[in-house]
Computed example of a mutant assay.
Amino acid sequence: MIKYVFIFILMFGLGISTFAQENDFDLGIQAYNEGDYESAFLLFDNWLRENPRDPEGYWYLGQVYEQFDGMSDFLALENYNQALALNPEMTPVYLHRGRLFLRLKRFEEAEADFKTYRRLPKGETTRIIYKTSGTDSGVSSIFTDQSENPSQILYLLSLSKAGQGQVETAISLLDSAIYYSPLESDFYAEKGKLLMDEKQDQAALIALEKALQINPDHYLAKQRVLSIRQGGDREKLEELTKAISTDPENPLPWKIRGYYKFSQSDFKGALTDFSEAISLHPEDAENWFYRAKTYAKLKNWIKAEQDFTEAMFLTEQEPELLLGRGQARYYQNKTELALADFIQLISIDPSNASGYYHRGITLHRLNRASDACNDLTKAVQLGMENIGEVKQKICN
């Protein structure tokens, strides 16, 4: 989803107007533009207490609410509604409210607002709209209310149509947006997504690769190409990928997508996601544990041992961690260290059949056949019946 940040610049001739004394409204705009949303909230709130019929105050307060978590989207919507109740001709509010409706999945209302935005005159004030994408860092481009290029509003209309299930219309609108702005990578990435939904993988790849040709770092486009080539539950993967794109500093979506990729045997992809989760939250033992399991699947036993050890520093020495590290050590021929892990595992969980099995085969490697046979017999008694052939060979 593209985020639009509106900044007013009042231009008079060749100069920019200045004010001898700034009021709460002006200070609120300044705080908002500097990213100090808490101060902006207080300033706009104070302004509206004294000026309860100022539509621009409600418009800006709505924008501030959009920066907060929780139920703030609905508070933003209330303020946009109030702004339009006071001034139904306030064109840019329709764009903001339409974008908010998109996020709330109220697609028909979003479409209505975008159409109203296109229909209404844009006024005399030049509003510079800084457009940032969830896949980009910083400002990617700018446009103004007076811009004759309709590509951005066509793009938003396509999203609202896609949300209503009108995929052909959405693709047609995207094609129109591309006609007006042929170097906008987001347009191709979204077209690729819609073609994927229509099972038109080859056409989708063409659109996605065009997005990457324009912007090689386009995150969603890269992930969608991987989704086509690797298969799996595309809807689930797309949902997780969008969550990451929306909030890339949040480790949880990275971890959850890592789980998903691990479950689909995409171990290299899982490794990348768990590594990112660790970089964002190194105190989470689960991140280290699952990356260790991923390294084990890739038979990188050295890295697996290191990550299991790190997880054990962060949490109690749980049986699964001891089992994993013991296995990693066993495959590195660190037999005595592996044995120590399996002994500790059994002391913590005496009914762990896998613990007895792994201690048994480790003892066998150490030429302690009798002890090995006892452990394998115990593993079978605890329900590990599929090791009968191994037990027979060692015990005989």
Score class of each variant (00 low, 15 high):
N367H: 13
R103Y: 10
Y356F: 15
S351P: 02
L156F: 13
L376W: 04
G360R: 08
L100I: 12
F8E: 15
H281M: 08
M312V: 08
L173H: 01
A221R: 00
K261Y: 03
S245A: 15
L366C: 10
T246H: 10
M90A: 08
L314M: 06
W254T: 03
E318S: 11
G138S: 04
Y130Q: 13
E283F: 06
K193V: 08
K393A: 12
S263E: 14
E385S: 14
W254R: 02
F101E: 04
A277C: 08
D284Y: 09
E108K: 15
N215H: 01
Q213W: 05
Q230A: 02
A277N: 06
D375G: 05
K299A: 12
L14V: 12
F114W: 04
T309L: 04
T309Y: 03
Y94K: 12
L363P: 00
A85L: 12
T335W: 06
E111L: 15
A20D: 14
G360D: 12
R99I: 10
E66R: 09
L314R: 03
Q202P: 01
E38K: 07
Y290G: 05
D113T: 07
L363G: 02
S227R: 00
A170H: 01
P319W: 03
W301K: 04
P350Q: 11
G123I: 13
L237F: 01
D371S: 14
E184A: 04
S354G: 06
S137E: 04
K334W: 07
P182I: 09
I387Y: 03
A243M: 08
L195P: 00
P92K: 09
Y219W: 02
Y331M: 11
L102G: 01
S147L: 09
Y94L: 13
Q82S: 13
N250F: 04
Y188V: 01
V167S: 04
P92F: 12
G258I: 11
W301C: 04
Y188G: 00
W301A: 04
Y117P: 00
S141W: 04
E124C: 05
I228S: 00
L337V: 05
D247S: 14
R234E: 00
V93K: 02
R53E: 14
F41G: 03
D284Q: 15
L42N: 11
Q152T: 09
E184I: 02
L156M: 10
Y356C: 04
A353M: 14
C395G: 10
T315H: 08
K161T: 04
E50F: 07
I214P: 00
N46Q: 12
S265Q: 13
G355M: 10
A338W: 03
D24W: 08
E22Y: 06
E316S: 12
A204S: 07
Y65L: 07
I346N: 03
N33F: 03
L271C: 06
D73W: 09
P55H: 13
K297T: 08
E209W: 00
T132K: 08
